[in-house]
């Protein structure tokens, strides 16, 4: 049977919320979180952040210390630090390869923010309830990262929405705090991002 997919999709869209629209149009990226929370089958709002494991191209994982996330080679006896992730539905003008998200330590009580006036912006961990931000439906650019899916869709990078051109990065040395860097430098801006089951 011949079936017009575009008309169906369009029709269907009217019934979907904004972030579902993205899923329908752009589907799942292995690197991108967008699938996974909607993959649970619900069309409703998220009730808790999705938990993601993040590691950089040099196999360094994130560990939380007080108010800093540090990238460290993971030992088999290391505790695992996951990130809590929610989509930012307040940013509308994205394209197929960019997905806006808010991230923080998995307890959901703190989020990553980008701040700075002139020069290099910095990453901080701020005391904000991630679900509160998710529910606000505002741009919240300081808290938002644009999740770019890389070639082959296995890797991705995280661009600060407030500071275009600045990406979440790790040092090539272990035990250094994560930071924001421009691409092309020594810092690592490519990550693996995997939803924790």
């Amino acid at each position: 049977m011949q079936f017009p997919p575009i008309s169906v999709t369009k029709l269907r869209l009217k019934k979907h919320c904004e972030h579902c629209r993205k899923v329908l149009l752009h589907g799942d990226r292995s690197c991108s979180p967008r699938v996974s929370w909607i993959g649970t089958g619900s069309k409703e709002k998220l009730i808790a952040p999705s938990r993601f494991r993040i590691w950089d191209l040099s196999q360094k994982y994130f560990f939380l210390e007080n108010k800093t996330l540090v990238a460290v080679p993971k030992g088999s006896n290391s505790p695992e630090e996951l990130l809590g992730v929610v989509p930012n539905r307040g940013i509308k003008d994205t394209n197929a390869n960019i997905f806006p998200i808010i991230m923080g330590p998995q307890d959901g009580k703190r989020v990553l923010s980008c701040a700075g006036s002139g020069g290099q912006p910095q990453i901080k961990i701020e005391e904000e309830d991630i679900m509160n931000l998710y529910g606000k439906n505002e741009p919240l650019k300081n808290f938002t990262f644009l999740n770019h899916t890389g070639d082959g869709q296995q890797t991705c990078s995280f661009e600060s929405a407030a500071f275009p051109g600045w990406f979440l990065s790790t040092s090539t040395e272990p035990n250094k705090p994560i930071s924001l860097s421009q691409k092309g430098g020594a810092e690592i801006t490519t990550f693996y991002f995997e939803k924790s089951k």
């Binding site: 040099s58 196999q59 080679p73 088999s76 272990p174 693996y192």
Partner: peptide, 23 residues
Amino acid sequence: QAISYPQKATLLSSGHLVCPLLE
């Protein structure tokens, strides 16, 4: 082996094993 470093690679794509903590 009890003190090994777990690392990951994805099937059919390029894998990158890093010898850690030599700095």
